[in-house]
């Protein structure tokens, strides 16, 4: 229940404050969001499969976001920023799909 409160609070804060992303962070936010989504979907899969561990979730969440941001930053410095962020998004997307497929199998047995 508490995570749902966090979800609602985050959306409400975002809508109410209407902040703008600082221009220095702008390349990183979309990648970080995808990485965090990967962690959340992975956590949901673990929850359904009955092996959820909050410590694992927190660490995977933070590290996913951090690694994604670092990779994009590194790509920008090396001059392959757009290619590398595309690659990161593709990999994370594949992981999200795989986890979603596992969740689907657990729920619908199909």
């Amino acid at each position: 229940m508490i995570p749902v409160i966090g979800l609602v609070a985050g959306i409400a804060l975002g809508l109410l404050l209407q902040p703008t992303v600082p221009s220095g962070l702008q390349p990183y936010v979309p990648i970080a969001i995808i990485a965090a989504l990967d962690a959340v979907v992975g956590a949901a899969r673990a929850l359904i499969e009955g092996r959820f561990d909050d410590r694992v979730f927190v660490i995977s969440f933070v590290s996913n976001v951090a690694i994604a941001a670092v990779m994009v930053f590194l790509g920008d410095q090396l001059g392959v920023g757009s290619q590398l962020s595309t690659g990161v998004i593709v990999v994370l997307g594949i992981r999200i799909f795989a986890n979603a497929a596992a969740i689907r199998r657990s729920i619908f047995h199909a």
Binding site: G6, G14, V21, I33, A36, V58
Partner: peptide, 24 residues
């Protein structure tokens, strides 16, 4: 495990994610 202290940490992370998605 979803309740108590760790539950709030998870809620915070999910909230941050929702916030970031909304802003973005």
């Amino acid at each position: 495990r979803l309740h108590g202290r760790s539950g709030w940490v998870i809620a915070l992370l999910v909230g941050v994610l929702a916030f970031a998605i909304t802003v973005q």
